[in-house]
């Protein structure tokens, strides 16, 4: 039988997060009293609650059929890489190069072959970005690398 793996893993992951947060909070933050609740009271309470709810999500799913979920690891990788390239490039490489590279990386998993359209798209998006955020909104961003 194809079990409802998403709810099993999802629920268990949440339960772990909850238990972890409650554990960390109870070790590091004061619980306080009813009159003067400490910084630990809420995180511990919420963490335990999340652990319980996570189990409530996961346990019934063990005996239930579920459907397979289509995962797109390459899309995720490219999108995240694109954000990081842009983020780290922004201050050092400047808006133009960071945006150009960011778009190129992001477009890698797009379901169409060819290099030309990617290069052109990156150019157009970069131009738009500069126009909207630098020229229009006057954000204080370096356009070009620091060393130029």
């Amino acid at each position: 039988m194809q079990r409802d793996w998403t709810d099993i893993f999802g629920g268990l992951a949440l339960a772990l997060i909850g238990a972890g947060a409650a554990g960390w909070a109870s070790l590091h933050y004061d619980l306080g009293s009813l009159r003067q609740m400490g910084p630990g009271a809420f995180p511990v309470g919420l963490g335990l609650l999340l652990a319980v709810i996570g189990l409530i999500v996961a346990v019934p799913a063990l005996r239930r059929a579920g459907e397979a979920v289509p995962v797109e690891p390459w899309s995720a990788l490219a999108v995240l890489a694109s954000i990081l390239v842009f983020g780290f490039g922004l201050r050092s490489l400047g808006l133009v190069i960071a945006a150009y590279l960011g778009v190129l990386v992001a477009s890698l998993p797009a379901p169409r072959r060819g290099v030309t359209w990617r290069l052109m798209l990156a150019g157009v998006v970069t131009l738009l970005t500069v126009l909207v955020f630098r020229t229009g909104l006057q954000m204080s961003l370096p356009l070009w690398p620091v060393w130029i």
Partner: peptide, 20 residues
């Protein structure tokens, strides 16, 4: 495929605009 790279860059700058 033309839209989403732009969306990503715009999201990044939108978030950056809050605190730099």
């Amino acid at each position: 495929r033309w839209l989403y790279p732009a969306i990503l860059i715009f999201i990044c700058l939108g978030v950056y605009s809050v605190r730099g």
